[in-house]
Design a protein around this nucleic acid. Structure first.
Lengths: 128, 128
DNA sequence: TATGGGGTCTCCCCCCACTGGAAGGTCAAG
DNA sequence: CTTGACCTTCCAGTGGGGGGAGACCCCATA
């Protein structure tokens, strides 16, 4: 299978697939013309990576998850630990965004949004 | 005022202040020794930028907000439009993160997290 | 006067996770 | 034989700075 087929099947851009090879996630064979040749194992790994990335796992998390996935004697505790760590990161980000949202939302509601220059948003941003 | 004093007062690292000069947010004077000399106007701008960045506005949003802040004849509608746009971005990000969180949370709860290799998280990530 | 410590300068590379584009080789259809 | 789609490598850029090198500069103390 060539990179275009793999891209269509796993939903990752060809650029990303080449990048994943660069950083050691996959090691596709090469045809005599230099083209990458993907076997089912690479396709599965790429699909795995696509799903893990869609859940927001970092590349380094993905590296660890991929290693656990390939290790048939893994402990599920290790997977759960990584996932809980990521869940905590997500919660932190959500909390930060919600705080921003609350502040900004109040300011927006207080702003007339008309032709006049008076603006509580700018006033708050320039408050000493 | 030197960059260290400004940094302490507005809470931005010196590196960030130099970067903000680079991208044209401020134009501090220079002393005969080459040191940047900050006047109150630059201090105010930097504080403004610090607060806007803390609310998650992008650098380009900040550029527009700063221009409106300096324009005494601005319409508050312009400020509100930018802020509403940013609010929409925040809402999108929150929604994305909450969706990730929901999926991942379900998986984590289903995972025993013990010594055994069986793991619903990996199973889901490798599902066809 | 020497010296030591801290502040500041510019410059360049690094981070994450790709993405875009240039320049060129390859393959299959018409 | 040509055309166009596909593939290759390599270089540069994104956003928003951070780290650190090497060189000045300023002030206080001995």
């Amino acid at each position: 299978m060539n990179i275009g087929d793999v891209s269509a099947r796993c939903g990752l851009p060809a650029k990303t697939i080449r990048y994943y090879e660069d950083i050691g996630f996959i090691k596709p064979l090469r045809d005599s013309n230099g083209y990458r040749v993907f076997r089912p194992v690479e396709l599965h790994k790429l699909a795995f990576l696509g799903r893990a990335r869609a859940l927001g796992f970092t590349i380094e998390d993905c590296r660890a998850l991929l290693a656990l996935w390939e290790d048939k004697g893994r402990a599920s505790a290790d997977v759960k630990r990584i996932s809980n760590g990521h869940l905590a990161m997500i919660d932190t980000k959500i909390a930060d965004l919600q705080e921003m949202r609350a502040t900004l939302s109040n300011l927006v509601e207080a702003c007339a949004g008309d032709d006049r220059p008076d603006c509580p948003i700018l006033k708050q941003l320039s408050s000493n």
